[in-house]
Amino acid sequence: MEGDAGELWEARLSAVAIQRDRTAFAELFSHFAPRIKAVMIRGGMAADMAEEIAQEAFVAVWRRASTFDPERASASTWIFAIARNKRIDRLRREARPQPDPEDPAFAPDEPDAADTMMTARERADRVRKAMATLPPDQRDVVMRSYFSEHSHSQIAEDLNAPLGTVKSRMRLAMERLRAALESEHEEGSL
């Protein structure tokens, strides 16, 4: 999400967390629920189920708003992760195993990380920009692998391309994304 809009949604999530602000919640819902539905449909889900997932995700947004940490993830990334988990819960009919930051065995973030790293919103922008600069064929396999359930061999079939080609595009894309993020880390820590 580009800067200002991202900040706006973060502020609304905080209002939900702290003041239990129903107006902010309604605004978040009307912005994100139709987008969750769209992304679920893109992943191959039927429209009515996608709509249910969007609602279930917002049940969790209301309940778990206080666990939103803008230093760790942007608002849209946090909401995406909730919707993704709801989708998995639905497909498996059981809760997806997730780490619990309240767990005494959970290794906390390093305290200096927040000072030396970019903000979560900046990092999210870097990932988005790095994706935008990938050659289209590489971006295509990353997006197919991310938003469909398809394996590399299924993607190869869909694209009518050899499996080795799909794998090497994927590998090159991951290397480029990683390189883009790492160079920006260093810049961010100066």
């Binding site: 992304v39 992760a81 990932v127 991310y146 993020l181």
Partner: peptide, 24 residues
């Protein structure tokens, strides 16, 4: 965890960019 969040942000970007599907 931070690396995983980087990849989750691809999903966040997809939400931002998605053409909304009106709820029935």
């Amino acid at each position: 965890r931070a690396r995983a969040t980087d990849y989750e942000s691809l999903g966040g970007a997809a939400l931002d960019d998605a053409a909304p599907e009106a709820l029935h």
